[in-house]
């Protein structure tokens, strides 16, 4: 369990660094070109690692093609995000995206198995959303004080 907690925290660090670098690239080239570079670099990198480790490419064993949707969703999200961001600003977008992500994540999470557990998880999500809101509010305040 402790190992998985550490891996999940490390995952967040990877997401943050990936987003910062990609965001910087997007400020030069726009969101869509940056997204393409991001995906193709990740693909080339993984291809090289798999070659080095002699890991053969494997594909889904079931006939369910649904499992291949993940990659498309990731690229499609960039379009939604840049559309929403241009209308609502980054603060609102961030809060709403996290709310949707945590809420829908809870629906999909098959590991929840009692109503008490569900209730506590909903409470946890509320704290997280408040935290994200505060982070954005503080950032906004500091930015307006600085200018």
């Amino acid at each position: 369990m402790t190992l998985y907690i550490l891996l999940a925290l490390l995952n967040g660090v990877c997401i943050a660094i990936s987003r910062i670098w990609n965001g910087q690239l997007a400020s030069y080239y726009g969101a869509f070109k940056a997204s393409y570079v991001n995906h193709i670099i990740g693909f080339i990198f993984l291809s090289m690692v798999m070659l080095l480790l002699l890991e053969p490419p494997q594909f889904s064993t079931s006939s369910n093609m649904f499992v291949y949707l993940g990659g498309f969703i990731g690229a499609f999200y960039v379009a939604i995000n840049s559309l929403v961001m241009s209308r609502l600003g980054s603060t609102n977008t961030m809060i709403l995206v996290i709310t949707g992500q945590m809420g829908f994540g809870l629906l999909l999470d098959s590991s929840t198995n009692s109503s008490r557990e569900l209730l506590i998880k909903v409470l946890g999500i509320m704290f997280i959303v408040i935290g994200v809101y505060l982070k954005q509010a503080i950032q906004h305040k500091q930015a307006s004080l600085a200018s």
């Binding site: 990609n22 990740g42 945590m102 994540g105 098959s110």
Partner: peptide, 29 residues
């Protein structure tokens, strides 16, 4: 950015299928 991005999918795949589950992965992330 694709390098940490590649690790993101790998790490999430490991943790979602562990005791932490999807909500734990998202929250800790």
């Amino acid at each position: 950015g694709g390098l940490p991005g590649a690790f993101t999918v790998i790490l999430a795949s490991i943790t979602v299928n562990s005791a932490i589950g999807l909500s734990g992965t998202l929250a800790l992330g």
